[in-house]
Lab assay of single mutants.
Amino acid sequence: RRRVRAILPYTKVPDTDEISFLKGDMFIVHNELEDGWMWVTNLRTDEQGLIVEDLVEEVGR
């Protein structure tokens, strides 16, 4: 599965499916959606939700 790492921290918008995360958090990407959004699991918190791909970088497989 594709893995990405947060290059900046992010605080979710209330009442959305987004998740908050810290710089350096690692994610497993489950689905890539329209407009640059991805459905992921945060490996640090085990939380699932939406993040925007502009805030992450690819991690070598």
Rank of each mutant, 00 (worst) to 15 (best):
L8W: 08
V4R: 04
E57T: 09
D46T: 13
L8T: 09
R61T: 15
R2K: 14
K23Q: 11
L43M: 14
F21S: 01
L50Y: 12
E32T: 14
A6W: 00
T11K: 09
E57M: 06
V59F: 10
D54F: 07
D35K: 12
E18H: 05
T45A: 03
I51Y: 02
W39G: 04
E18G: 05
E57P: 02
E32M: 14
D54R: 15
G36I: 01
W39C: 08
E32Y: 12
S20V: 00
L55N: 13
G24R: 04
R1Y: 14
M26D: 14
L55I: 07
D54S: 15
A6E: 02
R2Y: 10
L55C: 13
D15R: 08
T41M: 06
I19K: 01
V29G: 02
E32Q: 12
W39I: 06
I7C: 07
T41R: 10
Y10W: 05
D46S: 13
L22S: 09
Q48I: 10
E53G: 15
V29D: 03
E58M: 06
R2Q: 08
V4A: 05
D35L: 07
V13D: 12
Y10L: 00
D46Y: 10
G60F: 07
V40C: 10
V13K: 14
V29I: 11
D15A: 09
R44P: 01
N42Q: 03
K23V: 09
Q48D: 12
E32L: 13
D17H: 11
T41P: 00
G49M: 00
Y10A: 04
T11N: 13
G49S: 00
E53Q: 12
E34D: 12
D35C: 08
E18V: 06
E58N: 12
R61V: 15
R44D: 01
R3D: 05
S20Y: 01
I7H: 06
V29F: 01
E58P: 14
P14A: 13
R44K: 04
E47R: 05
L43Y: 06
V4C: 05
D15Q: 07
N42I: 01
W39H: 08
E47H: 07
D46N: 14
V13C: 14
N42W: 01
L33S: 10
E18F: 05
I19F: 00
K12R: 11
R3H: 10
T41V: 06
V4T: 04
G49P: 02
D35Y: 07
K23Y: 07
L55G: 06
V56C: 09
D25Y: 00
V59D: 11
D15C: 09
K12Q: 08
T16R: 05
G49W: 00
L55T: 08
D17Y: 10
I28K: 11
R44M: 06
S20A: 04
E32S: 13
W37V: 12
L22R: 12
L55W: 08
V52Q: 15
G24F: 04
D25K: 00
R61I: 13
I19V: 10
D54T: 14
I19H: 03
V40H: 02
N31H: 14
V56Y: 00
R2N: 10
M38V: 06
E58H: 08
D46P: 02
E18L: 06
W39M: 10
L33D: 08
L8M: 15
H30K: 09
T41F: 01
N42V: 00
F27I: 02
L55Y: 15
D15G: 13
A6C: 02
T16L: 00
D54C: 12
G60S: 11
D17P: 10
D25A: 00
L55R: 12
N42M: 04
H30A: 05
V29K: 05
W39V: 08
D35I: 05
F27M: 09
E47Y: 03
V56I: 12
E53L: 07
I51W: 02
V40G: 04
I7P: 04
P9Q: 10
K12V: 03
V40F: 01
N31Q: 15
N31S: 13
T16D: 00
V4D: 01
L8P: 00
R5C: 11
N31G: 11
I28G: 04
S20M: 00
V40E: 00
A6Y: 02
T41W: 06
V59E: 14
A6D: 00
R61L: 15
R1H: 07
L50D: 00
N31Y: 11
L33N: 08
V13E: 14
N31C: 09
K12G: 14
G36Q: 04
V29P: 00
I51G: 03
F21Q: 03
F27E: 01
T11W: 07
V56L: 04
D25C: 02
E57V: 10
T41D: 02
E18P: 00
G24Q: 04
F21R: 02
E34W: 07
V4S: 01
R1W: 06
V52S: 14
R1D: 15
R44T: 06
V59I: 12
E53V: 11
G36D: 04
E47A: 07
D15E: 15
A6N: 01
L43P: 03
I19D: 00
L43F: 05
V59N: 08
E47W: 01
T16Y: 00
T11V: 14
E57A: 07
V59K: 05
V59P: 08
I7M: 08
E57Q: 10
R2I: 08
N31A: 12
V4E: 01
L33I: 10
S20I: 02
I7S: 07
D17F: 08
D54P: 08
L8N: 10
G49V: 00
P14H: 09
D17V: 08
R1K: 15
L22I: 14
H30P: 03
G24P: 00
W37D: 05
V52E: 09
V29Y: 01
N42E: 04
E57K: 05
M26W: 10
T16M: 02
W39Q: 10
T11D: 14
V29T: 01
I28F: 09
T41A: 04
L22D: 12
E58S: 11
G36P: 04
D17N: 12
H30R: 07
G49K: 02
D25M: 00
I19C: 05
V56H: 01
T16I: 01
V52M: 15
D46R: 14
G49L: 02
L33M: 10
G24Y: 06
I28R: 07
Q48K: 14
Y10E: 02
N31K: 15
R44S: 07
P9T: 10
I19W: 00
I19S: 01
G49Q: 00
V40M: 03
E58T: 13
R5A: 06
L50F: 09
P9V: 02
D25S: 01
